[in-house]
Amino acid sequence: MFDVATATIKDDFSTLDGWGIQNRVWGYTGTQTHGGVITDNVCYDADGNLVLIANGDYYEGDKKGINASYSSVRGGKRTGAAVKSRRAYGYGSFEVEMTVPAFNGICTSIWLYNNFPDETAGRENHNYEIDIELHGTAVKENGALRNDGNLSSMACTTWLTEKDYKSQYVAAGKPLNDGAFHKFRFDWHSDKVEFYLDGRLMHTTRQYIPDNEMYFNIGCWFPNNWCGEPNFETDYLTVKSFSYKPFSEKANSLHADPQAGNGTINAAVTVPGRNYFANGSLEYDVGKNEAFTVTGTHEWSKGKLSFDGSLSQTIDIDSAGLSYLLELEMTAGAEVSVAYQTFVGGVKTLKTETVSDGAVLSPPEGTTRMVFTFTGKAKLQSVRLTLAK
């Protein structure tokens, strides 16, 4: 992993010797709005990639969130995951190859960070930070955008204190929640930071450039509102590699000692199959889990739902430019339709179509929501929506 001759680090996460798995909460004021990042949301996939799990509002599993006192709280809803380097880094080029979670509500990020008091009385804490953040479309109650972010863009930010920072949303020109691995990189110099996507320079800033060593982080978590609402069950950030190439410039090294950390993954944590439908296997009672809305009569047992009336689910996801495969295990007797909508500027339907098992769906430009409706009398055993190959 460590090349003494070049001092370059290349890490495929086959071990986590250089990392600590985070078990903490941040990013709220007053009442806690999410369950933090927890160790039980970190695992490997079948290919040996590091996986960071994000559980949304429709999650019904056994995991627990954490509070500022490091006590288990809430359920596992709105819990994410993060890893932090045990060593601090100076000026250099940092790159992570990873996939991006698909849903609204999640903040996916790579970031350098170091926060400590300024020794001059009355001054703000040093809040040294450089980050790339990715998140879905977020709107206010009136439909106005909360920010310029969506999953075809990335936010590039530098910080010196919690008040002194510069952030810029940059259009990627393609959907980043396409299930493919993308390379996110920033080059930190003493006088500028350059941000890259898949080898292409996207943005350069010369404002609020940190000059002290920082710790590198990779993670996904749940801010309050500004990334959208997490109306989903489970999503994943899959990380293939991290690399660091130092520059000749030397940063200060205050509060930059090596840190201890939990680098052991719980082997019992596994990656479920991806499904953009929440409760798509009907494991949870549809009368208690809010993912599906049912009208008329219905009878649920684990893995099976009989209904006479209508069944619907709303999936909030930046989906324009992507195609999806719909798979149904359902008896005849019900019609399935999907309405492609945008909620930007108020909810508007862009297109509606009738679909069936095996259909490939191509949402029109501007789609931020898909509403699926099952109408009639039938028995449903499972419904899956995945990215089309």
Rank of each mutant, 00 (worst) to 15 (best):
Q207G: 06
R146F: 11
I21L: 05
E327R: 15
D235F: 04
G143R: 11
D191C: 06
A278S: 08
W111S: 10
V4N: 10
K288Y: 11
E229W: 06
K183H: 02
S312A: 12
D187K: 03
Y208L: 03
K10V: 06
L328F: 12
S167I: 05
P175H: 05
T39S: 14
R86Y: 02
N231T: 09
E124N: 04
E97W: 05
D164Y: 09
A334C: 02
S356M: 13
N224R: 10
A359P: 02
L134W: 00
G90I: 01
G376F: 01
D285I: 09
T368N: 02
A82N: 04
D198E: 05
F247K: 11
N266F: 14
Y340A: 00
G65Q: 03
G263V: 06
G321T: 11
T79G: 10
N127E: 09
L16W: 03
G30Y: 11
T352W: 06
K10R: 09
T234F: 12
A334P: 00
Y44T: 05
A172C: 06
F232Q: 09
D211R: 10
K351W: 12
G65C: 13
E365Y: 04
M154Y: 02
F13T: 00
S248T: 04
K183V: 00
A260W: 11
T31G: 10
K348A: 15
M202F: 00
T205S: 04
T352I: 11
N225A: 05
S243E: 05
G199H: 05
E249S: 10
S253G: 14
F222K: 15
E97G: 06
R86P: 03
N262L: 07
A378W: 07
G376M: 03
E129L: 08
N177V: 07
K240Q: 14
N49I: 07
G65Y: 03
N127Y: 05
